[in-house]
Amino acid sequence: MDLLEEYRRATFFFESGDPLGASKLLEPIVEAEPHNTAVRQLLARAYFNSAQLKRAETQLRALVEHDPSDHYAHHVLGRTLERDGRFREALPHLRLAAAMKQQPEYSEAVHRVEQWLGKSETA
């Protein structure tokens, strides 16, 4: 198997709106190259976009463990936990990403989860 060609195919699938197809192509690449963060990140995003949240979480936790300063991995992990309804677990990752890199998307996610948690605690 030509891993680079498979990665290119997976990227095409992902960008064409087929995250499930992309994940099927990426899984054996991650197995063959477990330390390739670009492949693992794309696999995590493919899982997230196809609502395979537990699988996305697993990949993202591996990325964060490998590089705790990866703001994007923290953000997507936070978004994955948020999407799974695990707001308290999501917030630290979202805050950390926002502190590491000033991006509107990061700040908006923090605000959204803080708002949700504030509303749930007063309900």
Score class of each variant (00 low, 15 high):
residue 94 L to V: 05
residue 42 L to I: 08
residue 77 L to Q: 11
residue 107 S to N: 03
residue 110 V to A: 03
residue 38 A to M: 11
residue 77 L to W: 05
residue 116 W to E: 15
residue 71 H to A: 15
residue 17 G to Y: 05
residue 80 T to A: 05
residue 17 G to S: 00
residue 59 Q to M: 09
residue 60 L to D: 12
residue 97 A to Q: 07
residue 18 D to S: 14
residue 92 P to L: 11
residue 95 R to P: 05
residue 40 R to D: 05
residue 95 R to T: 06
residue 2 D to L: 04
residue 1 M to V: 05
residue 16 S to L: 06
residue 114 E to F: 08
residue 86 R to F: 08
residue 70 D to T: 08
residue 94 L to W: 00
residue 19 P to A: 14
residue 107 S to T: 05
residue 2 D to G: 05
residue 4 L to E: 09
residue 70 D to K: 13
residue 87 F to D: 08
residue 45 R to G: 01
residue 115 Q to A: 06
residue 43 L to W: 01
residue 53 L to T: 06
residue 12 F to W: 11
residue 82 E to Q: 14
residue 26 L to T: 05
residue 85 G to K: 09
residue 54 K to G: 12
residue 57 E to K: 10
residue 57 E to M: 10
residue 107 S to G: 02
residue 85 G to F: 07
residue 112 R to A: 03
residue 10 A to H: 14
residue 77 L to C: 10
residue 115 Q to C: 00
residue 104 P to E: 15
residue 39 V to P: 01
residue 123 A to T: 08
residue 87 F to Q: 06
residue 44 A to M: 01
residue 73 A to S: 08
residue 69 S to A: 13
residue 4 L to V: 04
residue 100 M to C: 06
residue 106 Y to T: 01
residue 2 D to V: 04
residue 15 E to V: 01
residue 81 L to K: 09
residue 88 R to G: 11
residue 31 E to T: 02
residue 37 T to F: 07
residue 123 A to E: 10
residue 19 P to H: 13
residue 122 T to D: 10
residue 71 H to V: 03
residue 10 A to Q: 14
residue 24 K to D: 13
residue 88 R to K: 13
residue 104 P to S: 14
residue 117 L to T: 07
residue 14 F to T: 15
residue 108 E to I: 06
residue 9 R to N: 07
residue 61 R to M: 07
residue 55 R to M: 08
residue 6 E to Q: 13
residue 84 D to G: 15
